Simulated scan of single mutants.
Amino acid sequence: MDENQSQDYYAKHRGMVISDNWTGYNLDVFTLPNHYAEDLDCVFIPHGVIVDRIERLANDIMKDIGDNHITVLCVLKGGYKFCADLVEQIKNLSRNSERFISMRVDFIRLRSYCNDKSTEDLQIIGGEDLSKLTGKNVLIVEDVIGTGRTMKALLSHLEAYDPKMVKVASLLVKRSSDNKYRPDYTGFEIPNKFVVGYALDYNEHFRDLHHICLISESGKEKYKV
């Protein structure tokens, strides 16, 4: 692997790296729902930065798997916004390119969180439809990878259906000693902190936030189940 290939591999797998000492942006300089005013610490990644990063991810995916039909497997609920924006960017690039990706989108739900903690139990909802993936090129679109256990379990589960190819794109990857898994495409590598917004939730709250934000301790307590 030459230097350019090495840099490209690094960018895809680590994405935009946000350091451990990043404190985010003051809430007062953004427009946010008033009902969350006391529940957030900061805006961690502004919406505009997210959109620009997704455009680059779409470009990387086009270069790698253009001229193929792929099944996009969106992991709900947190991945729906990222998936919709990523698919739209790929479609826009395809319309203006000699290469073309034909896509169909399917959905799956995974449950592995209680409050802000990942659990050992993985529930797969919608698994009866996975037989459609046999012999297909699959792009899994996930919102955030924490320990990597959930994604590894899903990939192991998919092996039984014998897809032709499986790639994983995750908007966020948390940096921690517990995470031994790296997706094929990463939007942002972030510290091991609990973030909400851009469809990422805390017990079904905060999905309506435009930006990715850090939830405050009082917010965790307020919406704890």
Results as ranks from 00 to 15, higher is better:
21 N>M: 09
7 Q>M: 09
186 T>K: 05
126 G>Y: 02
206 F>S: 04
134 T>C: 14
137 N>H: 07
159 E>L: 13
49 V>Y: 14
101 I>Y: 01
36 Y>H: 09
221 E>W: 13
53 R>M: 02
96 N>F: 11
20 D>G: 03
132 K>M: 12
19 S>C: 05
182 R>T: 10
11 A>N: 10
61 I>P: 00
178 D>T: 11
39 D>K: 06
110 L>A: 06
115 N>W: 05
180 K>V: 10
96 N>W: 10
75 V>D: 09
188 F>C: 01
88 E>N: 15
56 R>S: 05
201 D>A: 11
78 G>D: 04
106 D>L: 10
136 K>S: 10
168 V>T: 04
86 L>D: 04
10 Y>A: 02
128 E>C: 07
188 F>V: 00
82 F>M: 06
36 Y>V: 09
35 H>Y: 13
44 F>C: 02
23 T>K: 11
109 R>G: 12
57 L>E: 03
17 V>G: 00
131 S>E: 14
90 I>N: 08
113 Y>H: 00
18 I>S: 01
177 S>G: 11
139 L>D: 04
55 E>Q: 14
47 H>R: 10
214 L>N: 12
203 N>K: 04
51 V>P: 06
32 L>E: 01
52 D>I: 05
221 E>T: 15
10 Y>W: 12
46 P>V: 04
222 K>P: 11
11 A>Y: 09
190 I>K: 04
73 L>G: 07
110 L>V: 07
185 Y>N: 06
163 P>H: 01
128 E>P: 03
167 K>I: 04
165 M>E: 15
26 N>M: 08
115 N>C: 09
86 L>F: 08
82 F>E: 05
222 K>I: 13
86 L>P: 08
106 D>H: 07
192 N>F: 05
117 K>A: 10
96 N>S: 14
161 Y>N: 01
178 D>L: 09
121 D>P: 12
40 L>Q: 03
11 A>G: 07
193 K>I: 15
151 M>H: 03
113 Y>F: 05
183 P>Y: 00
83 C>A: 13
39 D>I: 08
107 F>T: 04
137 N>L: 03
42 C>L: 06
199 A>S: 15
8 D>V: 13
180 K>R: 14
98 E>D: 13
214 L>V: 15
36 Y>A: 05
52 D>S: 13
174 K>D: 04
77 K>W: 08
165 M>Y: 15
8 D>M: 11
90 I>G: 08
67 D>Q: 09
27 L>S: 02
151 M>I: 07
213 C>R: 01
31 T>N: 14
63 K>L: 12
204 E>Q: 15
42 C>N: 09
28 D>P: 07
84 A>I: 06
